[in-house]
Every structure is written in structure tokens, then in C-alpha cells.
């Protein structure tokens, strides 16, 4: 079938480096992937096209890039699957949130720096046993879901927080951190979590699920971040806006069945956080004038006691 790859290009060695788009018309097979197409270009049409790729079977993590605006592994993405409504053109761009080196090649050091920042190695205490550590298989199976990460950077590319705050550790590094926090052989859970609740850590995730959506290996980075939040609270790290927000939220539902939006910011910042409370006032006043503010006396749903009962029952199961 005939297809046009519209590739975003950038050559830093040119006289006036500037990104531009170049179209390649190709005749390819129905089963071909985007990577097959790009390899065809660089082997037969235009040798100057730069991209990273290696395994062709979604295990090495080299070929993450944006196709039609979303991060994918080019080797795992069939051209045919992305041609909607009779279109024959695909737009191929480098991964996002990382500086571009050339064409589809991005600067990955920003990615590795964040991985390094979570001290990504096992930190057991004491002398290791003569033989292997004894560990439950279900824990290992659970961790296999995280170790399935191939560090392709698709999640980082499309992370909506990294787009506005480079300080965020990001989905890949946080999933990597979870791999150790959840490892029964690792003894540094508390200190790891202590670092992860700081600015740029687990609480900065917006839960937008971009990472879940684009991860080619089903790692569910956001789910891991949520699990880290839970463990952080369990480990006594209540003293952050995020933790207070989660706890106030849960408390509100537990007691009334619905969310008390007025109490939420107060619970989050803490009623004694005068600075943040003052900041809320202008908005509150304006909202009040527009009739927009939530009711001061939050009303419980009928039968709220049933919700409370479920809370108590399920929470006791943990």
C-alpha cells in the first residue's frame, strides 16, 4: 500500500539549523510497522535521516517517537492501524519533553539523570544469605510488571507535568523507584519514600494517564506512582499537601458520601497555613459573588452510613 511519512527533521550541522517537515512516499506492506517504513527510507531513499532503533521487537526501547502526536514504539506500531478515514499520511516526530539532537534522535541524558536520581539499585541491609533471598513468587510476579519497563521514554515524552515542570521526576523514574520500594529484599523503603514525597516527586503527578496510555509494555507508571503515594502515607509521610489532600478527600467521602469541596483546600493546606488560606480568599469571594462556591454546610447523601460502613469494611481488609 502507498503511504506518506511526514517526518519532522532537524539538522544541527546545517548553516541555519531549523526544524522542518519532509515527506517520503513509500510503497509498503500491509503488515509493516512505522519503523519498517523509516528503515526503508534510510536504507533506500535518504541516508541522512537519523533515528535510533535496534531490536525491532519492542524490547530494547530505542525507537520511541511521536506518531500522529502520540508517543509510540515505532517498531510496535503498524502503519495500517494509524491510517484513519482513508488518510494515507502519518506524521512522525521526535519524542517530546527531551531536547532534539537530530531528526528523530533526542537527548536522553535528561531521562537517565532522573533514573539516577532515585538511586536505582537494590539496597538490602546486613550480610546477604549464602543462597538466594527467600521471597514470595507473587511479589516477584508483581515486580515483573514494573521490570517490564524498557526505558523507552514514551511516558516521559507525553507526560503533561514534565511539559510544565522539568523538576518532576516523571513516570519512568518513579516506576523504577517503585520497583525497589515494593521489593521485599530492599531495606531502604522509608528513606526512599522520604525523598519521593519532596517537590518533584510522587505528589506532583496529575493522574492524567498519558503514561498509562502510551506505555508499550503495560507498566502502568501512574498506577505505581499512586501505590508510592499510598506507601508514603503508610510510612508516616502525612505532612505534604498531596498527602493531606488525599486524606481529606477520603475523609469527606467516608463521612458524607460526596466531596466537600470547601473543606478540601483547607484540609490540603492545613487550616493554619495562613499564606495559602489568604490566597484562597479572593477566589472564594469572586466565586461567592457568582454563586459558584460550594455550600458552606456540606450535605451528606441519604444513606451515607452505608458508605461509611463500606469504608470501614474494606479498609479493615488491608
Amino acid at each position: 500500500m502507498e503511504v506518506t511519512l511526514n517526518v519532522r527533521r532537524y539538522d544541527p550541522d546545517s548553516a541555519k539549523p531549523a526544524p522542518y517537515y519532509q515527506e517520503y512516499d513509500l510503497e509498503i506492506d500491509e503488515t509493516h510497522t512505522v519503523l519498517d517504513g523509516l528503515i526503508k527510507v534510510r536504507e533506500e531513499v535518504d541516508g541522512t535521516l537519523a533515528l535510533r532503533c535496534s531490536c525491532r521487537s519492542a524490547v530494547c526501547g530505542s525507537c520511541a517517537m511521536r506518531v500522529n502526536g502520540h508517543a509510540v514504539l515505532a517498531c510496535k506500531t503498524k502503519v495500517r492501524d494509524l491510517l484513519h478515514r482513508g488518510s494515507t499520511k502519518l506524521t512522525v516526530e521526535p519524542a517530546g519533553n527531551m531536547p532534539i539532537i537530530k531528526d528523530l534522535v533526542v537527548e536522553f541524558n535528561v531521562f537517565w539523570d532522573k533514573i539516577r536520581a532515585v538511586e536505582p539499585w537494590l539496597q538490602p541491609q546486613g550480610v546477604p544469605p549464602q543462597q538466594e533471598y527467600i521471597a514470595p513468587n507473587e511479589d516477584m510476579l508483581h515486580l515483573a510488571g514494573v521490570m517490564a519497563c524498557i526505558m523507552c521514554g514514551a511516558c516521559v515524552s507525553d507526560c503533561t507535568v514534565l511539559e510544565v515542570d522539568k523538576h518532576f521526576l516523571g513516570p519512568a523514574a518513579l516506576a523504577k523507584a517503585y520497583r525497589f520500594v515494593a521489593d521485599p529484599r530492599d531495606d531502604a523503603e522509608k528513606s526512599r519514600l522520604g525523598k519521593l514525597v519532596q517537590y518533584g516527586g510522587v505528589w506532583d503527578c496529575t493522574r492524567c494517564m498519558q503514561c498509562v496510555q502510551v506505555c508499550p509494555k503495560g507498566v502502568d507508571p501512574m498506577g505505581r506512582i499512586m501505590a508510592l503515594r499510598d506507601r508514603a502515607i503508610e510510612n508516616g509521610y502525612h505532612n505534604s499537601n498531596g498527602a493531606r489532600h488525599a486524606e481529606t478527600f477520603a475523609r469527606s467521602i467516608k463521612h458524607s458520601g460526596t466531596l466537600d469541596e470547601l473543606r478540601l483546600p483547607i484540609g490540603t493546606f492545613g487550616i493554619w497555613n495562613v499564606k495559602e488560606m489568604l490566597k484562597l480568599i479572593p477566589l472564594g469571594l469572586k466565586a461567592q459573588m457568582r454563586g459558584k462556591r460550594p455550600p458552606i454546610f456540606h450535605k451528606a447523601i441519604p444513606g451515607a452510613e452505608n458508605v461509611r460502613r463500606i469504608f470501614e469494611k474494606v479498609e479493615s481488609k488491608r
Binding site: D11, P12, D13, R42, G47, T48, A50, I101, K102, D103
Partner: peptide, 11 residues
């Protein structure tokens, strides 16, 4: 070799 550049010359 088509690509004559210095940076990331995969060609």
C-alpha cells in the same frame, strides 16, 4: 555515505 554531517551520523 549520503550524510556528510558530524552529529549523529547514523549513515
Amino acid at each position: 555515505v549520503h550524510d556528510k554531517g558530524k552529529t549523529f551520523n547514523t549513515n
